[in-house]
């Protein structure tokens, strides 16, 4: 039997590169000004999945929920070696918290059907919550291995996987029955570079949105369908699913399906403690040390 792996990936704003004009005066973030990148731990998750495919064969499917431009990241998944790329995208998914996100992902996974393993990054750098992986596993009613450091063994005849995962001050090795969801920590697997041959082929891969954008009003819908079929026949279609495609309940998606709401957002206000400017001179430093000694901070 062959191995079917799904990798949950997310395109994220590069929060490590926030410059002044990204923050609006009211303290909110102008996401449009941030470069969008492949969430680093998701890329490592994809690498782990591809390594298992190298050993055992089978298929790797990259799955994301996100805006239309997340197709850019899905193409990168194809360049690395993913067999199939799926973009779950619908305006009604907007403002989803982790619960609504994991619901939509679990519905998409059920729509994919057969799977043995699900990988994902431990957390995304725009939220750092580490909640979507475990919540997706819960919705699918399967076990999870969080904080995965490496996969040690996959036994397809016994249908078990052994993985090493981080725990406080150490690690443990778990053996789990398939199917199981694994979240992958930083440094688990250095992502492979893009395969040049695959890049040449899949740079032409397109999502439904991208195909639509090439069609102007002079064409009818039938023409659009034919175009989609053509792209699909060339194996260059980034499958694009909306709420109806994955049979999701609208009330469980997006803002409506999110129990957590942002009540307010504030710029970081520094607590103005009594502040002394200390000159970097022996006298200045001596005075500071004397004060700290009097306050019993030293000694």
């Amino acid at each position: 039997m062959s191995l079917h792996t799904i990798v949950l990936v997310k395109q994220v704003p590069d929060t490590s590169n926030i410059s002044g004009d990204v923050m609006r005066p009211d303290g909110t973030v102008n996401r449009a000004r941030l470069p969008a990148i492949f969430n680093p731990e998701d890329q490592e998750a994809l690498e782990l999945a591809l390594r298992l495919k190298d050993l055992h064969g089978g298929t790797v499917t990259a799955l994301t929920m996100g805006p239309p431009n997340a197709a850019n990241m899905l193409r990168e998944c194809l360049y690395m070696g993913a067999d199939r790329a799926i973009l779950v995208s619908d305006r009604r998914f907007a403002a989803a918290d982790t619960l609504a996100t994991s619901y939509a992902l679990s519905k998409a996974i059920e729509h994919i059907g057969e799977y043995d393993l699900i990988f994902g990054g431990r957390q995304a750098i725009d939220g750092d919550t580490a909640q979507v992986g475990p919540q997706t596993a819960e919705k699918l009613n399967i076990p999870q291995i969080a904080y995965t450091l490496e996969v040690q063994n996959l036994d397809l005849s016994k249908r078990t996987i052994r993985a090493k995962r981080a725990i406080k001050n150490g690690y443990e090795i778990l053996e789990a029955p398939l199917p199981v969801l694994l979240t992958v920590t930083k440094d688990a697997a250095e992502p492979r570079p893009f395969d040049v041959k695959r890049l040449c082929v899949y740079k032409r891969a397109q999502s439904k949105f991208e195909i639509e954008a090439t069609v102007d009003d002079s064409h009818d819908l039938v023409w659009m369908d034919e175009l989609m079929e053509k792209v699909k026949a060339e194996d260059l279609l980034i499958e694009t699913w909306n709420i109806e495609d994955i049979d999701a309940d609208v009330a469980m998606c997006g803002l409506a399906g999110s129990p957590t709401k942002v009540h307010k957002v504030e710029n970081v206000v520094l607590s103005g403690s009594e502040f002394k400017k200390v000159p970097a001179t022996p006298e200045g430093l001596n005075d500071m040390i004397t004060e700290l000694m009097q306050d019993h901070i030293f000694g």
Binding site: L99, G127, Q131, G133, P134, E138, T260
Partner: peptide, 18 residues
């Protein structure tokens, strides 16, 4: 961080990390 998301998911509770 391993279990809170599962408990929140099943009970459809709000959960905020960190």
């Amino acid at each position: 961080r391993d279990i809170a998301p599962r408990v929140a998911s099943h009970t459809r509770s709000g959960l905020t990390a960190d």
